[in-house]
Amino acid sequence: MGPSLSIAGLEVRDPRGRVLLSVPALDVPSGALVGVEGPSGAGKSTLLFALAGLVAARGHVRWGAQDILALGSERRAAFRRETIGMIFQDFLLFEELSAADNAALSALFHPRKARAGLRARARENLTRLGLSGTGARNVTSFSGGERQRVAIARAMASNAPVLLADEPTASLDRAAADRLIDDLVTFVRRTGTTLIAVSHDPRLIARMDRVLRITDGTVSGDTTPNTAEGAQ
């Protein structure tokens, strides 16, 4: 089981002091699938970056017993390395590398003894995400959906129990997005991963256990979609 999330008094301001995000309290149990929706500029991605400890913020963001905001820059990085995987709208792959090398990117900065295991897990993730046999191919030949799968395999190569996704289907056409949603949800449910996904995609949001709505930097809604999957 991964860590649960507990937020208390989270506040992110811009350099001028304007409040970008304010979350007084929020709890997410381990293994939950949480969608974050809301208008553009409302603070959804800021929330995601705050959860990953990538922005300066006040308050507490506790993953299990660890308050990531209380850590220094390098310890936050170490925490992300072990605990949090991230995927982005435009995949951010290294175009010159193969799918396998992209998926096993974190092996480059993990200790030598962990590298073989990471590479094996990256290959396994690619297979689980329907990309078996494509590891040696350069990602420039991949479709958008395939690229995002490689990005997911990369995010999960270190067996992180938490996956933060920023608009994972926004760069995909409908059919590709639907296939990716299926694979992503299946993957995280099978591995027990906590998924927090910022998205404008109603079909992705509909597959979540819980949906947070962010408006003007605050959580204005916290609902549970009425789906059979979410009730399981």
């Binding site: 990085a77 170490a78 949090i84 982005f88 974190s106 990369r154």
Partner: peptide, 9 residues
Amino acid sequence: LLRALGAPA
């Protein structure tokens, strides 16, 4: 991205 993935500085 490397930093987001937890790469040490």
